[in-house]
Amino acid sequence: MEKFLIFVVVGLAAQAVDGSLGMAYGVTSNSLLVATGVSVAVASASVHFAEVGTTLVSGLSHWRFGNVDWRVVGMLAVPGGIGAFVGATALSNASTEAAVPWVAGLLIVLGVYIIARFVFSQPKVPSAGRRPGPWLLGPLGLVGGFIDSTGGGGWGPVTTPTLISSGTLDPRKVIGSVSTSEFVVALSASIGFLVGLSDEAIDWRIVGGLLAGGVVAAPFAAYLVRHLSLPVLGALVGSLILVTNYRTLLRSQDAESLPAYVPVVLVAVVVLTIALRKVGGRLTDTDGADDDREPARVG
């Protein structure tokens, strides 16, 4: 029961992050699961099984509010599902020792990306334009699906910013279409893990805990995004991902020691300081206006 509650908390935290940033449910939950001692393959499998439920609800919600371009969904979801299935079976067949540093390194890269996107840059929201073609959606879905299944997350961080920056689709449609496509990606990855790991190898307590926590957190995500600056939240999430996976990487190399943590802790402190100063600067420039509180998710 105690472990189940831990998984519920992980799912709740990950959904709160995803609801505020528009991404990082998989990256956050996978990082926290691996940090608690769950193997990388089981962690990624559990995240994707839970996401089958959360992405289905998300996709239906976006469809209901008219945020889905079904042509984009089709061209993105099919290659995304293929990439996810291939990545899941590859990770399932890899030895645990070999997979740990690979996944930790991949998650560190995604953590750096989240920090760069929400702390050191101000994403521009393009106006509605042409719809993206298969030359972009095909490779993007394939790469995004593979990274998502092998790293336990990454579909949102890879696909959403790429499509928004392309200027070929309204951002509202980008978020809705990517979220809807993720259902196929999560389902394909789950099938791949079932093939590679078998049903007996999956701890359904983890799946149930993540799903329960995500469902509980979903209604509060909108509240959180109104009361917490996105640069600060991005700094906290990115730093958490860096620290947890740096720790995993050190342990996999038998190099864990107190001095070894100094560099990553310093990076986290610097990043958070920059984010706080950025928010403080905005508040000063606007005479106390809450311009740093972005009401809409951008990626």
Rank of each mutant, 00 (worst) to 15 (best):
Ser229Phe: 12
Ser44Trp: 01
Leu32Ser: 02
Asp290Gly: 04
Val158Ala: 14
Gly105Glu: 03
Thr180Lys: 13
Leu91His: 01
Arg117Phe: 14
Arg131Lys: 06
Gly152Met: 12
Leu56Tyr: 07
Leu56Ser: 05
Val109Trp: 02
Gly11Cys: 09
Glu200Gly: 04
Asp287Gln: 14
Lys173Gly: 04
Tyr25His: 10
His48Trp: 06
Thr168Pro: 04
Arg282Ile: 09
Leu56Pro: 00
Ala84Phe: 00
Val10Lys: 01
Leu136Trp: 12
Phe146Thr: 01
Ala90Asn: 07
Leu240Met: 10
Ile147Thr: 04
Phe183Met: 12
Asp291Ala: 12
Arg277Gly: 05
Ala221His: 05
Gly129Ser: 01
Leu211Val: 11
Pro126Arg: 09
Thr28Trp: 03
Met1Pro: 07
Ser179Trp: 03
Val232Ser: 03
Pro79Glu: 15
Trp102Pro: 01
Gly144Leu: 02
Ala296Gly: 05
Asp290Arg: 10
Leu266Gly: 11
Thr89Gly: 08
Ile108Phe: 00
Phe220Ile: 11
Glu51Lys: 00
Lys278Arg: 14
Gln15Asn: 12
Leu106His: 06
Gly281Gln: 11
Leu106Asp: 08
Ala217Phe: 04
Ser149Gln: 10
Val109Gly: 01
Met75Ile: 10
Phe7Gly: 03
Ser165Leu: 07
Gly74Ile: 15
Ala24Gln: 10
Ile82Lys: 08
Ala186Leu: 03
His48Glu: 12
Lys124Glu: 14
Gly26Ser: 13
Arg130Glu: 15
Thr89Ser: 04
Asp170Thr: 05
Leu76Arg: 06
Pro171Val: 14
Ala218Cys: 02
Ser29Cys: 06
Arg64Gly: 09
Thr160Gln: 15
Arg64Leu: 11
Leu233Val: 13
Ile164Asn: 07
Arg131Trp: 02
Val112Trp: 04
Gly83Ser: 12
Arg247Phe: 08
Ala43Thr: 03
Gly80Asp: 15
Val264Trp: 06
Leu258Pro: 03
Glu51Asp: 08
Ala77Glu: 01
Leu56Cys: 04
Glu51Trp: 00
Ile114Phe: 06
Leu250Ser: 03
Thr284Ala: 15
Val225Asn: 02
Leu194Ser: 07
Gly53Asp: 08
Val100His: 10
Ile175Tyr: 08
Phe4Ala: 15
Ala24Gly: 10
Asp290Cys: 02
Pro132Trp: 00
Val271Asn: 11
Arg172Glu: 15
Ser46Cys: 13
Pro161Ala: 09
Val78Lys: 07
Ser29Leu: 00
Pro259Gly: 11
Tyr261Val: 06
Val68Arg: 02
Leu140Tyr: 07
Ala212Lys: 02
Arg226Ile: 13
Thr180Met: 10
Leu224Asn: 09
Ile202Cys: 02
His62Val: 10
Met23Trp: 05
Pro259Asp: 13
Glu97Cys: 04
Pro134His: 14
Pro161Ile: 01
Val78Asp: 08
Gln122Asp: 13
Val57His: 01
Leu106Ile: 15
Ala84Leu: 05
Leu21Lys: 01
Gly105Arg: 04
Ile147Asp: 00
Gly151Asn: 09
Thr28Leu: 00
Ala221Gly: 00
Ile241Cys: 06
Gly83His: 14
Phe220His: 04
Asn245His: 15
Val215Phe: 07
Gly281Leu: 09
Val119Phe: 06
Val125Asn: 05
Pro134Asp: 07
Ile82Glu: 10
Asn30Ile: 05
